[in-house]
Amino acid sequence: MVLVKLNTASAIISFTKKLEEDSAILYEELASLDKERGEMLLSFAKENRDNKTIVERAYYGVISDQVESSFFGELDSEEYGIDAEKIPPDLSGIMEIEETIQRFYLDAAKRLRSFLPDVSNAFKRIVKRRRKRQERLSEVMGNG
């Protein structure tokens, strides 16, 4: 994965969209391998694409020449990305990936809190959705 410094709002939003799309593709792939849980996994993929919309709406709705959209420090994309080659062909590694993505959202939400609070709040909402997803995954993995 190429290291990208996430030092502007635009860079963070692009990275977020890629993260959600990669995540959606991952769940779709997992669904094709796991027919028993396929429906649930596809619903997660759909949720990932909804998350993209939530983020886009928050950002495009509040971006303004008044806000410090480029001056809030930086995050390294390398610490949070999904590496397609490392994805296991089953649910075993998915919890770790979910943890990484949530960590990204929380770190980014903290950075953006003073400057783009709507985006920060949207990120926190997505973390809540992802935590619920984790609970469902735990349940099925425990049962499985």
Binding site: T8, A9, S10, Y60, G61, V62, I63, S64, D65, Q66, V67, S69, S70
Partner: peptide
């Protein structure tokens, strides 16, 4: 056409894409 309008501003004025989008929103 939000993104299109914003990128045109960057191309002709030079401002960053965040700044252009901010201008479009305003």
């Amino acid at each position: 056409n939000f993104e299109f309008l914003s990128r045109v501003q960057t191309m002709e004025h030079g401002k960053t894409i965040d700044e252009s989008r901010g201008e479009t929103r305003r």
